[in-house]
Computed example of a mutant assay.
Amino acid sequence: MSGPNTSYDPVQVAPLSAENVEAMIAEAFAAFAAATSVAELKQARIAHAGDRSPIALANREIGALPPQARKEAGARVGQARGRINTALKEREAELGAAELEQRLADERVDVTLPVELHPQGAVHPITALMQQMEDIFVAMGWEVAEGPEVEAEWLNFDALNFIPDHPARTMQDTFFVEPADGGIVLRTHTSPVQARALLTRDLPVYVVCPGKVYRSDEFDATHLPVFHQIEGLVVDKGITLAHLRGALDHFARAMFGDTRTRMRPNYFPFTEPSAEVDLQCFVCHGASVGDPDNPCRTCRSEGWIEWGGCGVVNPRVLQACGVDTDVYSGFAFGMGVDRTLMFRNNAEDMRDMIEGDVRFSRSLEGLAR
């Protein structure tokens, strides 16, 4: 049986000498200091602190030493590895902080700059104008009423005193939902909402009814098959034509400023008496009438502009909706929202309102509010 190894060849364990260990430490420190990025430091760590690094290989030589030399060499290599790892962590923290600072500087955003990252849309002028109209009547104590755009023929015509062979009930004027004899139409006005209000609400009724309507009209600069209306209905005790005139004057001034209205006799099945509402021209205020030297393009030198229809609610309409005509009376009116927008903002072509071009909405943004 052989005895313990009490002697060793110092040449074969030269990597464990104090000079060589210090050299390894110096090389590692120099490599860490030379690294200018975390990626370069990673390569330096593999070369000087990895499993195949000089200090790791020297650590494996400790087992070849006799017991009396093993303790001293182990302590020397352990301290060296500790110093290398400490230097590595310090350099890694320095480079990480430097790279983070550089990244923050490169990606810095100046939030004070007036930068528009995404193009902004705009509220459509028709929508804005209808909201303004609603606000006018809500401020007067009225309510906003809405109804379906696909409507029963009875509510669209019969309840409003349209006779069975009225021209408006033909396919040349009205869109019928198939089957054609099914009694369902795309509403031709928002008046069915008024009938629904009378059928579902307690009296008195003060409602304004904005919405989209459909008619078989030409598609040109002044006509659209799909357009917007706003109608008003009041049913209460003692309502007269004078109340209608006062409401329309207030509405007109809210829409067009300093202007006047007039009523011309007309016929509508759902009102009696009925009238057309005209606005005094808000451009020439009637001064162009009879003055060929100063013509007005807005009113064509007539002094007045047609705005909508109105009248006292026909008793037959009230009776169809279950209202006692001996106790209650009322008035109703209706105006085109699209035409009102044309009057207010000098829009020349109604087709611009449905093209979906945001530039049109932006050009009138704020004017219709």
Rank of each mutant, 00 (worst) to 15 (best):
P10F: 12
T188N: 03
P295A: 08
D326K: 11
E355P: 00
V185Y: 01
C310D: 02
R297V: 03
A49G: 15
V138G: 01
A80K: 03
T36P: 00
R316D: 11
P148E: 09
N346M: 08
K89M: 09
T174M: 09
Q280I: 14
E92V: 10
F268Y: 06
D181P: 07
V77Y: 04
N156E: 08
V337C: 04
V313N: 00
H250R: 14
R215H: 11
E116T: 15
V277Q: 04
M255Y: 00
T170E: 08
S53R: 04
D249M: 15
G182T: 14
R253Q: 14
R81M: 13
A14P: 00
D249T: 15
G308N: 06
L364C: 01
P225V: 14
G141T: 12
V207T: 08
A139R: 13
S7V: 15
C209I: 06
N59S: 10
S17N: 07
L241T: 07
M335D: 00
L241H: 03
I46Q: 10
V144S: 03
L224Q: 06
S2R: 13
G232P: 01
A35C: 11
V312R: 05
A180W: 12
A73G: 05
D236R: 05
G238E: 06
C281W: 01
R76F: 06
Q319R: 13
W142P: 01
G356P: 03
E306L: 12
P125Q: 01
V109E: 09
L224F: 09
D352S: 10
A254W: 05
D220P: 07
A347T: 15
D326S: 13
T190M: 09
R196H: 09
D158V: 13
E134S: 15
K89F: 02
D352Q: 12
N266C: 10
F360N: 04
N266L: 03
C321S: 08
E90T: 15
L129I: 07
G366V: 13
D338I: 04
P167K: 13
G334A: 10
W154N: 06
P295W: 12
G96N: 12
A287Q: 12
R76K: 12
A47N: 02
P164I: 11
A368D: 02
E306W: 10
C299Y: 00
V234E: 01
T222W: 08
G330I: 07
A56C: 06
N20I: 10
G311Y: 02
N314S: 09
W307T: 08
L65R: 05
I239M: 07
H223E: 04
N346P: 00
A23H: 10
E94I: 14
G147C: 13
L341C: 12
R215W: 13
M350H: 03
L198D: 02
L367Y: 04
V235T: 05
E306T: 07
F137P: 01
A18E: 12
T86P: 00
F175K: 07
L186T: 01
E19M: 04
Q120S: 14
A122W: 01
D106S: 14
Q132H: 13
V111H: 08
E134Y: 07
F157R: 00
